[in-house]
Each structure stands twice: as C-alpha cells, then as structure tokens.
Nucleic acid binder design. Sequence first.
RNA 1: CGGGGUGUAGCGUAGCCCGGUUAUCGCGCCACGUUUGGGACGUGGAGGCCGCAGGUUCGAAUCCUGCCACCCCGACCA
Length: 497
Amino acid sequence: MCQTKAMAKNLTTRGEDYSKWYNELVIQADLAENSGVRGCMVIKPYGYAIWEKMQAELDRMFKETGHQNAYFPIFIPKSYFSKEASHVDGFAKECAVVTHYRLKNAEDGSGIIVDPEAKLEEELIVRPTSETIIWDTYRKWIQSYRDLPLLINQWANVVRWEMRTRLFLRTAEFLWQEGHTAHATEAEAIVEAEQMMHVYADFVENYMAVPVIKGTKTESERFAGALETYCIEALMQDGKALQAGTSHFLGQNFAKAFDVKFAAKDGKQDYVWATSWGVSTRLMGALVMTHSDDNGLVLPPKLAPDQVVIVPIYRSDEQFDAVSEAAKEIQKELRAKGLRVKFDNRDTQKPGWKFNQYELQGVPVRIAIGPKDLENGTFEVARRDTLEKEVMAKNEVVDKVVALMDEIQENLYSRAVNHRTEHTTEVSNYDEFKDVLESKGGFISAHWDGTSETEEQIKNETKATIRCIPFGVDKEEGSCMVTGKPSARRVLFAKAY
RNA sequence: CGGGGUGUAGCGUAGCCCGGUUAUCGCGCCACGUUUGGGACGUGGAGGCCGCAGGUUCGAAUCCUGCCACCCCGACCA
C-alpha cells in the first residue's frame, strides 16, 4: 500500500479554523447551501441522499420496535400552546406565528401586501415540536387501556426561530422525526424512553460510526415539559460535544394539560403516561464533524450514497471502450454483492479532477482502471479513510472491496472512539477542570454537587455545561469540584454545539 | 436580539477613504486544437441593474439613509 499525496484542496484546514473548515466543507461537498430565507438551508441532492439513508435505517428501527408513522399539521393553534406551562416557557421565544391568511395588491401600486382584513381569529404557531397538537389529538384516540400503548412517529419539518444558525447544526427550519407515545403505566413509559435512547445510540454508533455516551440530562438541560431527558452525546474533532439525540419521559404532564384519560382494567380513570423522542438533520453535522479531514468529507460505507466509484483512465476511444467494459463488469459483480457502485464515465472531466471530487465528497472506495490495468489484469483501489492505494489482482478485487466496506466502517468508528478516549479527562478540582477545558477540551468527568446553582456558575465561568449524567458508570463518592459538597457520582462536562 | 464585519460575473477578488473614459484579476463557463495513471495547456469568446430601495450630485460601485442576506463574538437553543 502506498499513501496518496495530500492534495491541496481549496479548503481551510481543521487546524487553521475548524468552524470555517466545516462551513466550507458542507458547501464544497455539495451537501447543502444557504437559501434566500434567513436561517433556512437548501439541502442539496448529495446531502439529501445521505439523510435519506439515515431516515431509512431509523424508520426500519422504529417499526421493528412497534411504532407506526403518521402525520400531524404544521400549524398549531396558539391556545394549545399555553396549556402546558413549562413547554410554553421553553419554546415561546423562538416561534414563528401565522397571523393572516391573504395577500392583496397595495392600493398605491407598490406591490403585494398582507391584507389587513384577513387577520386570523386565532393565530397559528408554526410547530417547533408537536406535543401539543398531538396530545390534543390523542385525547380522542384514547379511552381504554386497550388503546394503549399508542406508539406513533412522524417525519416532519419544524421551525425554531434561531438567531444564530449554521448549516445542519442549527437552522431555523430543520427536518426530523418525532416519536410520541402514550402508556398505561409510568414504568412502561420510562422503559419506552430508555429504549429509544438505545435505538438512537445503536443507529449513531453502528451506521454513522459515531460513538456516543448515553445518559440523562440535568434538570436545567431537560426538555421543556419533561420529567426526565435521556440523551446521547458525541464528541467532535475540535473537542466540543454535540447532542445527537434525545428521548423524554414526559410523565403525565401533557395528559393532564390535554385531559387524556383512559379506563384501566379495574374501571378507574387515570391519565396516560407519555414519551417523546427525536433526532434531526443535525446528525448530518455530527457525521461531517466526526470523520472528515482536510481533504474533505469522509463517509461511513453504511450511509454513503455511493460506496464505490469507478474512474476510467484512457486516451483513445478504443481504450475507453476496453476500460469501460472492464469497469461495467466489476460494477456488476460488486452490485451483485449488494454494493452501491457508480461508474463515472463522463468524458467531460479528467481523472485527476474526479479523484479530487470524490475525495471531497467522501466516497469510501475508489477504483481506477486504465490501460496498464487491462494489460496486467489489475485494478487500483484507493480507500478514503486512510488515503491508501493498492493495486489488486482482478480476481481478488470483488472480495477485497466487499471486505473493505466493513473495514472502513470499523476503522472510522475505532478512530472516533480513540479520539474520544484521548479527549476524556477525569479531574479532581476546579483549577484542573479549567486547565483541561482550556488546553485540550473534550469531555471532562468531574464531581458536582447536584445543584442548578453550581451548574450555572460553572457555565458562566467556563462556558462548559453538563452534557449528561452518564449511564453505566460506577457510583463514586466524592466532593463537588466547586463547592466541596458531597457528590455521589461523576458527571460529564464539555463545551457544546 | 446586542456588538463587530462583509456583500462587485457561477465562485474568489481589486477598485471605495479621496465620486469622473469601456469596472480589475484569477478560477469556472462556451468554441476549436493538443491532452487524459492526482484538480492539463494554448488560442479565441461569452458573461455585471457593483445585495436591494431611496437620497445627495452635472455625474455614484465609491458619499448619506433605510432594508435584506451572510460571517465572527455574546445571550438562547436539537
């Protein structure tokens, strides 16, 4: 194997400016671009193809765990919103509101204006999330324990009027799925919320090759209206954390607000127990920021729209025909193994240009075929994750490339795990905490006294927040690094996206 | 939403302070030819309401006002 030269792309490097690198990469890899509408992005075909892959796997996982898809309106009457107090508090500041339903020509001929005559009796909120409209609907669907559990998911767009936006990471409108379930018992709802956190972790680790920490949120980081928020947290290459998915145990808050009761077996009426859970196009940002390098995007084979690209090299038409024949043959054989294989036979771009383009777009494996290969019975196979090239004998290419898919998928995951391990630090006092935060960032495991006040103080002084109270770690008696008060366990801090 | 910055051809830019011929350069685009194993080269060509709307002026990319979008820093957030 030999290493390919690091090609100079018109891309800012991660070392120079991580955030600039991200912005440029998303655009140059043709994933998305800004639109004429403030804070709203256009997801381009290549980016959308990756999102569709994510959707397909998640949708399958949701259905395997008994959920069904449905669709609820994008508009929510304002009165619904005010029914659950903490929910309003959480979202009120970032809601788009529809106030009118008609336009007309201005009388002075200056153009189209909103018709002041056409004011809505009740204003409509463009959904920032759908709990209220869904629970208003569930009231009609649920009468008996026989109607439970109700396990519904919807794929939708939502709008949160964000002041500062970044492609995929935070946009005013974004795509997501939101699951909303209703259960007869508290225990069952908690099991559901935990289950969905595990489903998310499974997807993110095994398909996106992004390792995550599972845990719960502190009270101040909890979803507006939830009793408990379960989350998965990932660490990006710049040492900042990114919340990749959340699952909420909502208790009976929404059932009470929307009067959703059911008759139990003993005939008594009780409020149902709720969960909601979601992941969004933000996952695209996590995918980019976890694996990609200074040469461009790096995609895990399981989510890459094209897993293999074949680039022909030729001078004459005769050579092109001969090379094409070999290319189509190998494409057919790889497709028979279930791989997504593109043969780029465009004559309008040169091989070197194509190499760079597919590197920028993160295609996991590239196969080049030229006259020399036809002569020698070989192919040149290059992998994107390590940038290694290897000349392979024709008869071993298919098996090797098929094996490469798993190898690359695993390599990306273990690379990310290593990075996270190296950037997870246990500290014993506040000075050390600030030191580590400043010098290398990443997750910092520390003792905390469990109060919102201390959490707030740390946030104000260092910009780090408690990402989660992690699951599956042994309890360890200690004292809070700030106040010295007793602490039963360590929690994970980080600066976050 | 507060502070700072930017907006000139598809992209990146010069010109702007100090107003005055036909708005600069590179990449990309089109045609033709030579090329094709890591973003080829030559020759010729097309492409601009200088972000938008007002204003000042004999004259505005340039000065003034308002608006819109984007970027960076804060507060907020999936």
